[in-house]
Design a protein around this nucleic acid. Sequence first.
RNA 1: CGCGGGGUGGAGCAGCGGCAGCUCGCGUGGCUCAUAACCACGAGGUCAGAGGUUCGAGUCCUCUCCCCGCAACCA
Length: 485
Amino acid sequence: MKYYVTTSIPYASGNPHIGNVIDWLYADTIARYKKQQGFEVAYSAGSDEHGSKIYEKAQEAGIPPEQFIETVVPLIVAGHKLINSEYTHFARTNSKQHIAAAQKLWKQMGDDIYKSKYVGWYCVGCEEFKTETEVKENNGVCPLHNKPYERLEEENYFFKLSSYNQRLLQLIESGDFEVLPEFRKTEILNVIKTGLTDISVSRPKKKLPWGIPVPGDNTQVMYVWLEALMNYITVLDYPDGADFKKFWPTDLQIVGKDNLRFHAAIYPAMLMSAGLPVLKRLFVHGHLTVNGQKMSKTIGNVVTAKEVVDKYGADAFRYYFLRHVSSYEDGDFSWPTFEAAYNNELANELGNAVQRTAAMIQRYLGGQIGQLSGAEHDTGAVEQALAECRFDRALDSIWDKVRGLNQYIDEEKPWELAKKENEKEHLQEVLATQVSDLLQIAHLLTPFLPDTAAKIAAVFEAGTVKPIEGTLFPKDEVAKSTPAK
RNA sequence: CGCGGGGUGGAGCAGCGGCAGCUCGCGUGGCUCAUAACCACGAGGUCAGAGGUUCGAGUCCUCUCCCCGCAACCA
């Protein structure tokens, strides 16, 4: 039983965006879940290291692009560490392995790639082609350079995407390639139905020196996104590597909604063209807003994963973004909402349930838990939610259990049982049920909040209560260190 | 008529044909094992608007208004 989950790789031009981090969070949660279920799991992350933006940034910094990307990759790696994202494979598109494999794939696509001329509006000042709309909006004159756009021809390689229309429709409609959520499937089907056109997949090397050379034509380099999409394959050491043979095809690809077209249309077409099995499933998540606004440097509302993790820890970060950011739609972050979730749910409901249970066992039973009830737990709701990538719902239903436990404690009133000599046995049963519930909760929580789950399990696992040093989700500390905003 | 999402108590959301529900916040009460935590009860909604289908509509259909996102080879 193998499971391969892949995440879109961020462009290595600077610090990773919190949107990238959310990608990893979903992937990591699924990876841990599948591992828990006994699957052998591969989880790939990486960095996209070619293209004009990186080339320009490197020039600005006065260093060669090879060197520039080495300054960015550690930031991406650090981003994973920050939130406890444990990828098994890391794709670097400037690695020898990737370059060689990408060229192999290009050749594998055979006649689907052909040379043709691209004709468009070009601004000599900007040194780039402009879209029809942009040209129209500016009345045919580039506002930056105050020069009219020129009609220009350029030789490019093209990918015969148009010939995959029918096969893509069939693949997606049949569910052989599943697109989640349903409305994204509708969306991409509409796009495909209006007709996909062939797309340019290379650029003249003169204009874009930083890329992978087209095999057999060193005047052209591959378009960045084309070879970037190949990372999911090349990272497994395509075509002969053991990992490729074991893990391909991808079971679940995770992308943001901005990437829908690339990953739901172009990418599967490329795979078909190269004669490879198509990925099985694509999960498209939404974007994040801050205080209801799009995150933007201009507005100045950019929130980084680091700020949040530094203050509250990786598990609190994971908790908020998995539960309170909608898995399907766009989600919002704000400090007050985050802090409310932290205090009410993590500290008061979960943390306190652990604490009161541990304290009562120490006080009433001398720390000895005794016989656990072998009560059956219903985990169907969590499994169902995860099967649909509804991380938010999955945590909702785990929290139903947390609340249920607190209610149970209040109904049974162990502190009263403790006063009655003839209720000793009943008391032990009640407390054992609490422990069994908490162990169950910890088990369910493992993929979502790995550290927290391990801490809870450690308190009760041994049969004797081993209190946590400090507190799960300390409230006071946080209140002190974060004055009201 | 480019494509998609959304408009439900103060806030955030669920419900998608059968008594309007959840969390937060607010009010009242209970409890004392616990991280000033926990539990119960309550107030608060003409489900964006109009029309239609139906025994019955947030829920289906039509139209309108208002938000948001995506796309238009330029990853």
